[in-house]
Simulated scan of single mutants.
Amino acid sequence: MQAAELFQQRIKPLEVARQLRTSRKSAYQRHRLWREGGREALASRGPGGSRCRLSLRCLEKLAAYLEQGPAAHEWVADQVWTAARVATLIGRQFHVPYSVSGATRLCTGSASARRSPRGGLPSVTSRP
């Protein structure tokens, strides 16, 4: 919204970039959006990225599965949840493909903590 105020004052995009400590490219993109749609065009559209592919119910089930421990899901060598194991578990239980990085984001709370009444999923280790 600061950019919109500056553009309304006829301040050039390069100066807006300097004042707001952003890139020239970003300032020019914002200026174009502002010209085409006004202040509303610069309003936040919320967090970027794709949405969680699991429903709230599935997230709750996943949390319960993770609390059972790896041995309950055929990983008996060690009792550590890894992101790779969580991704595999999601595929097995919910038939939804998840990448290792997606499972990591899910378990660090960036996706699940906002949706799960339990406050997120148990953490996983970073090793594969």
Rank of each mutant, 00 (worst) to 15 (best):
L59Q: 09
Q79C: 08
K61V: 03
A113V: 11
T104G: 12
Q93C: 11
A71V: 01
F94M: 13
S101M: 15
E60P: 08
R115L: 15
L42E: 01
R39W: 05
S55Q: 06
R35I: 08
E60C: 10
H31F: 12
S112M: 03
K61N: 10
S123C: 05
A111Q: 15
G109T: 11
V86Q: 04
A71E: 07
D78H: 15
P70M: 00
R53F: 02
V96H: 05
E36F: 10
A43Y: 13
A113D: 11
A87C: 02
Y98W: 13
K61E: 13
P47I: 15
Y98I: 11
T125M: 10
P122S: 15
D78N: 12
R51P: 04
S44K: 07
I90F: 09
H31I: 02
H95K: 14
T88K: 11
E36D: 14
P122G: 14
V96D: 01
C58F: 04
R105M: 12
G91H: 06
R53G: 13
R105T: 11
R118N: 01
V80F: 05
R57M: 09
L33W: 06
R39F: 07
W81S: 00
H31R: 05
L54Q: 12
R114E: 06
W81L: 02
P122C: 15
V80Y: 04
R53V: 02
H95E: 10
G109A: 12
V76P: 04
L54W: 08
A87K: 00
H95L: 11
S50W: 07
Y65G: 05
T88L: 14
L121K: 15
W34K: 05
G38S: 02
W34C: 04
V124W: 00
T88I: 06
R57N: 12
L66N: 00
A77M: 10
R105D: 13
E74P: 00
G69N: 02
Y98T: 09
W75Q: 11
P47K: 15
R127G: 01
T125K: 13
G46E: 01
L121R: 14
Q93I: 04
G119M: 11
G102E: 10
G91E: 14
T82V: 02
A43K: 15
G46L: 04
T108G: 10
T108R: 14
E60I: 06
A83D: 06
A64G: 06
P128W: 00
R105G: 08
G37F: 03
H95T: 11
R92E: 14
H31K: 05
Q93W: 00
G69R: 02
R127W: 01
C58S: 13
C52I: 00
F94D: 12
Q79S: 15
